[in-house]
Every structure is written in C-alpha cells, then in structure tokens.
C-alpha cells in the first residue's frame, strides 16, 4: 500500500534522506532502526508533509481506493484523510483545546472525506469512551487539553488514542516507545496490537528492540545516512540489541 522509491529529502538545505526505498503491504509490520541522525524522524515528517522538509527527488505512492497515488500531490490533511497517520515523536501541546473537540474535528473531517456520516456529540462521546476502554486508558484523557500538562508517557498514549479513533490504514509510529516506562510500553504495545487488521499496516521507528516484543515485526530495516542498508526479519532487531550497529555498518562500508 506504500511504495517509497529512491527518496531524497533535505531540511535547511542539508540532505538527510539519500535514496531511500521501502515497500509496505497491507497487514505487515515494519520496524525501522538506525543510529542517531540516520534520518528516521525525517522520513516520518516527509511522509506526513511537514512544510520544513523539502523533497528533492524520488517518489512516494500510497494506495487510495485501490489505486497508487502520489503522496506529494496531497496536502498534509488529505494524506491523513486518506489513511496515513503519524504518531509524533514530540506530540504538540494545544492549550485551550480539549482532546474531545480535537478528536471530533479530526474524526468528522475524515468521515466527511470518506462520504460517511459525521458523528453527533453523543455518539462521538460513546466512541471515545469505548476507545479509552480498549486501550486501557483513563476516560479523563478525553476532557484534558490536547497534550497540555501531560507526562511524556501520557503524550505518547494520547497519540495511540488518536490512532484508535482515526483508524488509519498506515500508522507510522515515530519513536512512540521512547521515554515510556515498562507499564506504559505494555499499554502502548498492546494498544497498537488491538488496532492491527489484515488491511492496515504499521511502521515503527525505534531505537529499541523491547517494543518489538509486543508488536512483532515482519521486517526490520536498518537506516543509515538516509538509506536502508539492511533488511531482515525480527531476529535482526535482536542482533542489533546485542551487538549494536558497528558490524552492520562495517559490512555496509566494505
């Protein structure tokens, strides 16, 4: 459903992605790992359409209504409406705006785009409570201002709550596991698993193998200097955890 071909992208004139290619099919889980500064977060931002990142060449296609479409022809909100979701590494605080109002605006924008009926106040409240239960989250999340005064772990869990409400076809989780304690990690991991279906896909960008114990990947990719230099199964993550990137980078440079 997602095909990235030879993608080059830069920020402030500096090239970060240098010929990245990746293919993701429905039902798959991919993990992208790599040392600091390899371009993991840039990839997430480029896919979501952040205006600070400039795509210099290459293409990214995403399947919309059984047809592959150029992602760069879509504004960030259109990408979201067509099923691409980015869980932010640093979720943004929006003072004054309750989570419920934000989620409702999001949900209804997506419903409208898909020609579905928008939710009423009451029916949406029901959806929210149901999702909180599914993810083992406190219903108080709903009434709090978006990410304001949230702990690091709460912010990440709030991203997963948003994902549960929006139900994207492609979820891109940018270091969602960073900064989580063991319990939060389990809640997030189990939450994502509950949202998995055969027609949606998950891409996890992570530094650590531990989240992969919960969300077991079909493929593990190593990103280095803006390109994927190695792809393997779930055992590759274990290898990295045990030995670090040194050997992989050495093999690559030779």
């Amino acid at each position: 459903m997602l095909e990235i071909k030879n993608l080059h992208a830069s920020v402030d004139g500096k090239e970060i992605l240098s010929g990245l290619s990746l293919k993701v099919n429905a039902g798959e889980v991919h993990a992208i790992m790599g040392p600091n500064g390899s371009g993991k977060s840039t990839l997430s931002k480029v896919l979501a359409g952040h205006p600070d990142y400039a795509v210099t060449s290459g293409q990214v296609e995403f399947e919309v209504n059984l047809r592959m479409k150029n992602v760069f022809d879509m504004a960030p909100e259109e990408r979201a409406r067509n099923g691409i979701f980015l869980a932010f590494q640093y979720p943004v605080e929006i003072p004054g705006v309750p989570n419920s109002a934000f989620l409702k605006a999001s949900y209804n924008a997506i419903c409208k785009h898909q020609g579905a009926k928008e939710a009423s106040e009451e029916s949406f409240q029901k959806i929210l409570i149901e999702k909180c239960k599914l993810l083992n989250m406190d219903e108080k999340f709903i009434d709090r201002e978006v990410n304001v005064a949230f702990s690091g772990g709460e912010k990440k869990r709030n991203e997963i709550l948003q994902m549960a409400v929006i139900q994207p076809r492609l979820a891109f989780l940018d270091e969602t596991d960073s900064g989580l304690d063991v319990d939060s990690l389990r809640i997030v991991g189990e939450g994502v698993n509950k949202l998995r279906k055969k027609d949606n896909a998950v891409v996890l960008v992570t530094h650590y193998q531990r989240i992969l114990n919960y969300i077991v990947p079909d493929f593990v990719h190593v990103l280095y200097k803006g390109r994927i230099i190695k792809t393997g199964g779930k055992e590759l993550a274990l290898e990295i955890e045990a030995n670090g990137y040194d050997q992989i980078l050495k093999n690559f440079q030779n």
Binding site: A48, E77, A80, V97, A101, S106
Partner: peptide, 23 residues
C-alpha cells in the same frame, strides 16, 4: 500546532477555529 492538527485530517480553517474557540 497547525501542522499537528493537519496531520489528523483537520484543515487550516478547522485548526484555526479550534484554537480560537479553545482560547
């Protein structure tokens, strides 16, 4: 903030309206 809201499918008009109503 605007980008965050857009990445959830809310367009600029909707994002501004949410911020304004919130404030």
């Amino acid at each position: 903030q605007i980008f965050y809201m857009k990445s959830r499918g809310v367009d600029e008009e909707g994002a501004v309206s949410l911020l304004l109503h919130g404030f």
